[in-house]
Each structure stands twice: as structure tokens, then as C-alpha cells.
Design a protein around this nucleic acid. Sequence first.
DNA 1: AGCACGCCGACT
DNA 2: GTCGGCGTGCTC
Length: 802
Amino acid sequence: VEALVDCPNATEAYTYRIPDGMTVEPGDILSVPFGAQQMGALAVRRLTRLPEDLSAEDVRPVEAVVGRGFFPPGYWDLLQRVATEYCTPLMQVVRTALPPGLLRRSQRRIRLCDSAPSTPEDTLSTGAQKLLAVLRQSATADYTWTYLKRQSPRANQGLRELLQGGWVESYLEPPKAVRPKQRQAVTLTGAPPLNDLSPRQREVLDVLRRQGGELWLQDLLQLCHTSSSVVQGLEKKGSVTIHRREVLRREMTHATADQPQALTPDQAKVLEAIAPLRHYQTLLLHGVTGSGKTEVYLQAIAPLLQEGKSALVLVPEIGLTPQLTDRVRARFGDRVLVYHSALSEGERYDTWRQMLTPQPFVVIGTRSAIFAPLHNLGLIVLDEEHDGSFKQDQPAPCYHARTVAQWRAQITDCPLLLGSATPALESWHNAQSADSEPSNTLYLSLPQRVHARPQPPIQVVDMREEFRQGNRSIFSRSLQDALTELRDRRQQGLLFIHRRGHSSFVSCRACGEAVDCPHCDISLTYHQPTADATPMLRCHYCGHAETVPKLCPTCQSPYLKPFGSGTQRVVEEVERHFPDLRCIRFDSDTTRTKGAHRALLQRFAQGDAELLVGTQMLTKGIDLPQVTLVGVIAADGLLHLSDYRAGERAFQVLLQVAGRAGRGDEPGRVVLQTYSPAHAVVQAVKRQQYDRFAHEELHQRQLGSYPPYCRLVLIRLSSPDAEAVRRTATAIADQLRAYEAWQVLGPAPAAIARVARRFRWQILLKFPLEIAPHAVDWEELVRSHCPKQVSLTLDIDPLNFW
DNA sequence: AGCACGCCGACT
DNA sequence: GTCGGCGTGCTC
């Protein structure tokens, strides 16, 4: 059998012998010998004879089949397609798709010997003594070697001494499979009650009978304030049985029951289009904020469950959408499974196992949930489909869940529903029917809010003017008025800040212009690698660099200033100007811990504060009817981000935050402060005209030849050795420039040039649409030119440019 | 990952 | 002259 071994360095398949009496099918999870250890592996295909370059004695036998039946029909094709299109080894994709812990490996462990050592303790070196001390701390006196090495500085030498002296032994622990969690259940046998029961036993039986004849042992003991010996006594007498039963670890539900709501005529029309679909079809549901997209999803899913089909609902970040999750739970109860990477290993494993059962489920999860092994998939929904977090850019494969969803829908022949108030331009573009061919995406729209509530008016405030008028506060007079009004009317509001670490731009407080790259139509990024370094302006795309000018290149004013304003500062300002308005800070600092997000939102919903001050997080999943004011402190941080999607993203974020206002009966109001009131994005947001914005932006993309009119491939290089990355990046770029099929931009250092002690460079390639990036021999052209010390990743259709 | 092999700096 | 550090390469 050919198997993929779960070893970071071994990406291609290895051949193993199937021992007599064992059956192995493709897709089975195996345990195989690999060097000195045992590794998790995945059976790929059966071979009928030995590969040419292997002799029979080279081939070792499969140790065991650890799991089977993990892949629904077509799943294998999906993984294969992801590997091919994203130019990643299949094993890498398998690791992303499967829950961690499914593939296990053996571990080197060290434990204290029982027998007496042959060397006296005081002759041992300090390294050896330290190891002994660590081992003796624990009751089992048994640790993994990796852990011990971390604990003690001279571990290698120390271990040798201890092994020779007979103090410790070293052994390879075979991999243990993650096991379903077991609990003990106690069941009444129905045997006639015996007379020789003790009073305590009688009491226990009584409780058990009253509770329906079956309880978890733990719960029973707690109810009766007794110990397990009593229950064991009952078992001996034949009155109850105690047996281990699998329990599935899953998140607690916060759900209250929820009923389907009456649909608006628009919603009904949309649902009518979705409901009859039973085959592959992509739908774009473009519904303004507050138009009730969620209700449409829920009512589209309900009949599928009746038919025994499952649905997959993908959301950008599960933590940010507790309201949606709660609502799906409330509607479908225990049919709902939540799957995302923040689940514990056990929870993921259990959820995965449950999905393999043939019952229908609604799986709600983040991007990795696109790989949920559902058997009978009837619908895939991507909520907020424009959101960038559907794209993975950290470990390969750098996949986009929307793209993978497309493939999955195709393979399983089910509809794919993309929902957003501000669709990604790609999705919008796909939904437009070109002259040459009809669109493959069906366009559905919800242009009105539910209950005919109006969209909140958006007031744009020119902060240059405020500055000229002598207002140095971060709040314009309009926003101050709005806050005063908010206080007087006892309403609630959101203050939105865009803050993005140190990668910001430089703009002029007098004229509002940002400093642009002379070679590209893009703002330069402000770089200051260390506090004492000279700040520089750099271009991500072409590598151009210059020092920060003393005067504004446009108006010669000296008020050039790197942008960046934090939530903290805004909260302080509110406290200073509006002491009776209470704030809750809502950003990555305050929502770091599990559940903090939900807790803060709950406090705000209860009225513990009038203002929620936060970053990007405010744009998602907040649906609070009492919010009437949204203030955008400075839109500029968003406007001048230095990549081709900056405009699109800014538009989406601004329109999304604006959409948080006026969702209840009270009308909403939005104050958008900016130094660039004339910026096309600001104007488009003000008008709240998605269509026109999309049209114009696409036109720009076409002129500049950017996606969706071309495809991008980003080559990311990093190394602890600054010179080595630079050299490699240059060499690879030169190599690539020899071809006319694509256009090479760069090499250029990454925006954040050094992260975790690694220096980072990148090369951007533009492919015409006729050429598929995965048709290129990257191994030959790129990877083989990359020395060991430099790591290289390919990002196909990148969204983030480091 | 874990292990072996092989090449350069601090000790007998 | 050796021991032991870790860079490099391999595991069916």
C-alpha cells in the first residue's frame, strides 16, 4: 500500500507491506514504522507490485489500521484538488483537513528505573542531576524527551550519564489514538428488588428509579452524596449495571428556542429561488445590512434537514459571531455542530466523529470547517463571503474557503450560497453576466432592511477643516454633538477605529494626502524596524524606498504624520470630554480570553455602557437594536493601505460598521471622520451605493490588470539570515523574469521586514487568466533555487501581502 | 519529528 | 588528541 506519512519533511508517499490477515483500503488511517518510530499515515492506494526502485526487504509492514471510514464520497477528490491548485503536497492538505490527533506518532520518553543505579549520585554532572531533579518532581517520573531537553540545559550529556549509570531508561512510546471520552453510566436492570439491600443502597435505587432508571455514575453519586462502593454493591447484587459509554465533548449551548420568522416579500422571493435547488449552483445573496440574510439561510436549511441532508455554514470568525451561532442553535437544536480550530483536540475529534454518522447536521464553523466530513451535503452557506479571514495565509495550503467551497459544491453537486452586504468584487464579477457567456452565479438581492427600516444616513466630516478651525480633538464638532445627543437620549453607540500595528502610512494633516510610491499607484508604507532606526517609506510591490520627507510633497506643509490611533486613546478622550458616557473597549487586547467577546457584548447589550469602542471586530456579528450612533474616528487608516484591495476592503469595512446603526425602531446615524473626504471610497460609502462602487473599482482593476482580471501568485521567503533571503529572492526573481508568460513584481522586503527573528521578502507574479498557476513547475523553477536556510511558501491568489 | 552521521571549538 | 556541540540528510 502506498501511504502518506505524517512527517513534516517527507511529503511523498511511502510503500508498505500489508501483513497477512489485515485489510487496508485507501483512506484508512494507519500506524506505520518510519525510521525508529511509529508514525500516523494515510493509505492512498493499493499497489499490485513493488515499485521498481524498491526491493522486498526495504518494505516494512503496516503496524495497524487505526481508523477507517473517515472520508465521505468525493472527499478524496476535494483534497486532491486543493493540493493541486494550491501547489501543496497532498499530505499538507490532509493535515489541514483532518482534526489534529487523528494522525499520531510515537514519542521518545525517559523514566526513572526501579532498579538500583550503579553509580553514586554525587559523581553525576550538574546536567544529569538537574534531569534527575525534574524527573523526581513528578509522581510518574516519566517525561517526554523533548520536554526534558527544554527543562535542562545540559540534557544530552546528562541523559547519557544517567542511561549508563542505570538511573533512567529511555523508551519509545507507541502512538495512542485519541479515544472517545468514556463515562460510566448506571442503569437499572429491572430485576426484582432484593430484600437484603442496605438502607444506602435502597436510597440509591430509589433516586435512580425516580430519575428515569439511568444516570451517569458521577451524577448519581453527587445526587445521593455517596461513594461508588454503594453502587458497586448494587451491581454485585444484580440491581444495576455499570457500563462505560462514549460521551461526545461539545460546547455548551446557550440557546433559547427560536421560531421561523415571517419573511418580507424580498426575503420570500429569494428563498423561493434557493429552496428548490438540489444541484450544483452558485448563488450570490447581496443583502444590505439588516436585510435579514440569516433568516433566509435558516429557512433554506430547514427543509434540507427534513430530507436527511446536511448543511454547512461558514462564518469568518466564530468568536465574533456568537449571535449567529446562538440563533442557528436555537433554531435547529442538537442538529447543530460547531467546528473551528479553537476547539480542544478532543472536541474537534468528537465533532468529526459525529459528522461521520449518516444523520443530517448543520455544521457551523470557520474556514477549516469547509473540510467537515459530511456525507449528504445539501447546501453550503458562506456568510460574509467577502471577509478576508476565509483565506489562510499562514501554513500551506494557502486556501480560500470560498474557492474550496466552490469545488466541494461541484464535487458533491449541491448549491453554494454566498451572502454579504458588500460582496467581494470577485463574487460580484462572477455574478455579472458577461456579453460572451452567461454568468455561472445566480444573483439574488435584498435591497431593503426588514420592517422597511431606513439605512442610517452617513455624514462625512472633513477633519482638515476641523484642524483649520482649531479643533485639535479627535472628535469633530459633529461627532461631539452626536455624542451629546446620545447621552441626553440615553442611547448607545459604537466608535470605530482602524488600527493596524506599525504598518501604517504617512499623511499630511493639512491637505490629507498620503505619500505615494513613484512607480506604483499605491501609498507607501511607514517602516521603523527598531526605535533607533531611521524611519523609511517603502513600496510593497516594487521595492522602492525613501526616507520620510520633511515637508508634504503635495502642499509643503510640515504636518506630515504617521497615522495610527488606538482604542485606548479614544476611550481616554471620551472620558475627558464626556465623563458621564461609559465605554467598553472592544479590541484584540480586551477580547483575548475565551468568551470575553460574548461577555463584553452582553454587558453592552445590558446597558453597562453607552459606547463600545473598538477595531475591526465591530464590523462583524453585532446586531443590537438599541445602537443608534456609529462614529468612525478616522477612516484614513483604511483608505491608504498599500495593496490593490485597499479600496475594496475599506469600502466593505466602513459600510459594515455603518450598518450597525439603526437596526431597531430608533433611526440610526453615522458620522465618518476623514482627512480625505473626496476619496472615491469615502464618497461611495457616503452614497451607500455598492453597485456603482463595484463597477468603478472593477474598471480600475481592469486598467491596472489586477484580480479578477489576472491571477496573482505571491512567493514568500524568510530566513534568519537577512543576506541569504535577499540573495535568494533576487536570484529567484531573475530566474522568473526569463519567462514572458507572467509578469514579475519585486523582489521587495515585506512590510514588516522581520518577524520572529526572520527576515522576509516577497515576489509577486501576475498571471494572465489563460495560464493556471498550478501548471507551472514550481519545483524546477523556484523551490530548487531556494537554499535550506531560507523557507519558501507559495500563496496562490493571495489576499494578504505581509 | 527523531535519529545518525559528520564536521569544527573547549577540555585532558 | 578527544568529546560534544548542532547542521544536514533520511526514514518505505
